[in-house]
Design a protein around this nucleic acid. Sequence first.
DNA 1: TTGAATTTATTGATATATCAATTATATTTG
DNA 2: CAAATATAATTGATATATCAATAAATTCAA
Lengths: 150, 150
Amino acid sequence: MDKLDNIIFYNLEKTIKSYRQFAQANCLKAGVEITIDQWLVLKTIGEYPDITQHQLAGRIFKDVASVTRMIELLVTKDLLYRKSHAEDRRRFTLTLSDEGRKVLELMRPISLSNRRQALEGVTETELQTVQQVLQKILHNVSKEVDEKSV
Amino acid sequence: MDKLDNIIFYNLEKTIKSYRQFAQANCLKAGVEITIDQWLVLKTIGEYPDITQHQLAGRIFKDVASVTRMIELLVTKDLLYRKSHAEDRRRFTLTLSDEGRKVLELMRPISLSNRRQALEGVTETELQTVQQVLQKILHNVSKEVDEKSV
DNA sequence: TTGAATTTATTGATATATCAATTATATTTG
DNA sequence: CAAATATAATTGATATATCAATAAATTCAA
């Protein structure tokens, strides 16, 4: 009853880790030298060109400290430029380099195919249920900001 | 269409990370000084007293290297004993200390309550669907050992 | 408009993740 | 049985996770 295998969160972790390994292996196979996490950063910057590192961290559920270091790495790899922000000198403007955009292009079909393969045999209805349940859990575990102020 | 928010794996990660933070915070609140991962190790050793580190790593989807280091830490914290295995000198016998068992006891109600809170409003049917989908995904992304040998 | 509070980001310390190389012991096989 | 192979675990290197402390710039408020 209390066994790990029956615990949904355990299975969630197991699944997501397996998927990550699968996805990572497919990137390498396709010759893209980038981690899934680094891809997430690039992709998010692509979607939100004027994002702060703080917001970025929130989007990809990482710590700002991790984001700082990932960005350093991506800059070193010449996938990303970072320059001081024009209006707010605390911030940085993050811009994809040509190389960075190329990587995103290369990754698009790969990530599509990864997802398609992983979801083979899963119906649209099932998928919706999963998304709903995830939403509920997310809501349940998010800090109830003012539970006591009621 | 291609936006991160629509990707189920992105939402899986988001949910599991939020749950982890929630669970970790509740442990600390209850005064248990242990990470969720360390708890997983202890719990697994409790369930499988004669497990090898290699098997343990498999069970908790971690690398053997990570397991080595986590065990070192748990031994340092006096939650775990490690002694050479009687029959196979490559191995170690891992045994929970009294303190380790106490931590597991303390954690039981906490993890139950964590899960109950997190799953509030999720029906049994939904839960089953999720488990099914996870199983399918897991199957899809697991190495197809002999795809080509057909 | 100055001083306090807030925001943005970095850095240090420690834990975990992952890969590759290595060591020690066991097992298999020629 | 000795040599080759396999298994169990460790170690080093590098990436990421998380917390706390700090620094710099901005905003707010008295």
